[in-house]
Design a binder for these strands. Structure first.
Lengths: 313, 313
DNA sequence: CCACCGCACAACCAATCGTTGTAGTCCTAC
DNA sequence: GTAGGACTACAACGATTGGTTGTGCGGTGG
C-alpha cells in the first residue's frame, strides 16, 4: 500500500548529494536511466516533485529539501535494524522477564545514564533457554532467578545477585484485605493467590512453589496465560482472589477497577534477580552494564532482614 | 546492495503481532505463501532466522525479538518521511539561510522547548523565492531580511523583525588586524572583505551593498561560491583578506588555521532578520513559533544603540 | 492413529527493474 | 545564430522479482 522503496530512497540521497544523476549512478553502479526511473517512481509515490531538472544537473525542490533529512533518518534506521541482528559489533542484547518489572527498570536506568550504548531487549522462556542463549552468544546477559533446587550453573556462565525485588499483594476493591495497609504472610494462609503464566518447570514457578511450601499458601498457577488484562479484570471483580506483583512493576489499569497494592510483611517475599553472562564475553557494553549494576547496588543498600527468598537463591 | 524491502519489514511486524502467517496475510490482503516468501527473503538478507515455525503458528526467535523494535522504528521513520511532503497535517516548514546562523539557532531553541512540534528546515535562494513559496503555501515561514530598497511586501504576507544579528570580522593569524580585540567600521576602510555566495539580486547582497556604500568599505562579492571550507582556507592564509561572520554562527574549523573573530564597533553592523508568513496560514505550530519568538525577544532586549542596519530594514 | 492446522515448496504468470539506444532541452562558445 | 556538449526523459527489450494456485510435509490434539 505505502510501499516506499529503500533503494529509491538511497538513490534520492545519493543524487541529492551528488547533484547529478550520472554521478549518483556511478556511485551506485547503475545507469543514469535507472536513477531517473527510481527517482521518478519515488516522486510518483510521494506525489511531489523532489528535483528540478536543469541542464546542469538536478537541484532539490523545497519538498526535496524537506524530505532529505527524513530520507537520511530512514537509511540510518535501516542501518541500525541490520546491525541489530549482525553478530559482532551489535547492540548489547539482554534477556529480561517482561518490560514492567524491576530488571526492566534497571535497564531503562542504564539506558538513561549511558545513552550511547545500544540496547536490545528480548524475553526468553526460562532460565534454561537463557543459559543456552548465553553460552551460544546469542544474548549477552540475562536477568533470572538462579537457580532452582539441584540446579547447577555451567562453568562458563557467571552470575551475580543484583536485585531483590519485594512483592506486593494486588487485590480488587471487594477483597477482604482490600482495606489493609499491610498484611503478613501468615494472614494470607487460606487465601487464593493466582499467578498465571508461571509455567511449570520455569524458575518463576519454582519460586512460587517454594513460597507456597514455606508458608502454606494456596497459590494457583494453573490456567492458560491470556495476558495481563484479563488477569486484572478477574482480580478486580473477585472477593477472594488476589495476586502478587513486584513493587516496581509499572502496571497500568483503568482507574475504575479500584485495584489495591498492599505491602507484605513478616517477612516480605522478595524475588532474587541475578545477572547471568558468559565469562569470556568481551562485549564492551557488558562491562559497563555490570559496573552500573554494581554501583547502583552499593548506593541503594536494601535491608535483607525481614525478607524471604528461596534457600537456593 | 543492502536492499531491505520495507514491505517485507511491514509483513514481519504484522506477522509478529498476529502470531500466524495466515492472519498476517489476511491483514495485508495477500496469500499466506506470499507472507512466507517475504519473510524468507528478509531472513536471507539479514542472515538470521526471525521466526520459529511451529504447528501452532510462528513465534519470534531471539533475533526476531531484537529486530522487532528496530523494524517498528523503520516503519515509523517511513511514516514521518511520507508525512514530510504531504500537504496538510505536515511539519512546520521554515526557510532559513543556512544551518549555522542565528535564525537556525532560534529554530533549534524552539525545537528544544517544543519537542512535540515537527520541524522541516529548507533553504531557498532569496527573498523573492521565499515570498512566492509562502504565498503558495509550500513553506510556512521564512527568516529573511525584509526588504530591499523599493521593495514591497505583498498584502497577504506579514513580517515581523525578530532578531538583529551582530556581525564579527573573521581574519587569519597573519592579518593586520588579527591582534585587535575590537575594530571600528572606519578602520576597515580600504581593507578587502570577501563575501562569496552573496549572489547579486538577493537581499543578502543588497545588505552588503548598503554597508559598502554607507562606510566606504571594499567588499568583494564576486567569485563562485565553493562552500565555506575553501573560503576559510583562503582567509586563514591571507594577510589582507577578511570576511564577516555572524556572532552566533557555529563555524567549525581546524584549530591549526588560527582564525580570529574580532568584534566590530562604532557602529556594530547587524543583520536584520525578520520572520515572514502568510496572514491566513492556520498551521497551529506557526502561532506557537511566533509566540516563542516574541517572548524570546522580550526577555533578551538587545541594545539598538551603536548598531547599524540598512535604512530599508 | 488419524484428521487438522499451519507453513514451505513448485510451477506458472504478471509486473517490475535495469539495460541499451535515442530524443529533447538548456547552456555556452565561436 | 548555430553547433556542440552536458544532462535528463522516453522507448523497447530481456532478466529478475513477486504474487497466485496447487500440493506436500510435519507437528498437535482428539
Amino acid at each position: 500500500m505505502a510501499g516506499m522503496d529503500l533503494d529509491a530512497v538511497r538513490t534520492f540521497v545519493t543524487a541529492a548529494d551528488a547533484g547529478r544523476f550520472q554521478d549518483a549512478a556511478d556511485d551506485l553502479s547503475i545507469t543514469q536511466q535507472a536513477v531517473s526511473k527510481r527517482i521518478a517512481a519515488l516522486e510518483r509515490i510521494l506525489g511531489v516533485q523532489l528535483f528540478t531538472r536543469t541542464a546542469r544537473g538536478a537541484k532539490l525542490t523545497i519538498d526535496g529539501q524537506a524530505f532529505l533529512p527524513h530520507a537520511r533518518a530512514l537509511l540510518r534506521a535501516e542501518e541500525r535494524a541490520m546491525a541489530s541482528v549482525q553478530p559482532g559489533s551489535r547492540a548489547l542484547r539482554v534477556d529480561v522477564l517482561g518490560r514492567r518489572g524491576g530488571p526492566a527498570g534497571l535497564l531503562r536506568e542504564f539506558h538513561r545514564t549511558h545513552p550511547e550504548v545500544e540496547l536490545d531487549v528480548v524475553t526468553l522462556f526460562d532460565i534454561d533457554a537463557a543459559v543456552a542463549a548465553i553460552r551460544s552468544g546469542t544474548i549477552d546477559a540475562s536477568f533470572r532467578a538462579v537457580s532452582m533446587p539441584g540446579w547447577r550453573l555451567p562453568e562458563d556462565v557467571e552470575a551475580a545477585r543484583v536485585f531483590d525485588e519485594p512483592l506486593q499483594l494486588l487485590t480488587g476493591p471487594a477483597h477482604e484485605l482490600a482495606a489493609a495497609r499491610t498484611v503478613t504472610l501468615a494472614e494470607l494462609v487460606g487465601h487464593r493467590i493466582w499467578i498465571p503464566g508461571a509455567a511449570p518447570g520455569t524458575e518463576w514457578a519454582a519460586y512460587y512453589d517454594d513460597l507456597t511450601a514455606a508458608f502454606g499458601l494456596t497459590i494457583e498457577t494453573t490456567g492458560p496465560d491470556f495476558g495481563v488484562e484479563p488477569l486484572l479484570d478477574t482480580i478486580a471483580d473477585s472477593r477472594s482472589l488476589a495476586t502478587f506483583v513486584s513493587e516496581q512493576s509499572r502496571l497500568v489499569w483503568p482507574a475504575d477497577q479500584g485495584l489495591r497494592r498492599i505491602d507484605v510483611r513478616d517477612p516480605t517475599p522478595v524475588y532474587p534477580h541475578s545477572l547471568l553472562w558468559r565469562r569470556d564475553n568481551l562485549h564492551p557494553a557488558l562491562a559497563a552494564f555490570r559496573d552500573h549494576l554494581r554501583s547502583r547496588q552499593a548506593e541503594a543498600e536494601h535491608p535483607t532482614t525481614g525478607t524471604w527468598a528461596p534457600a537456593w537463591a
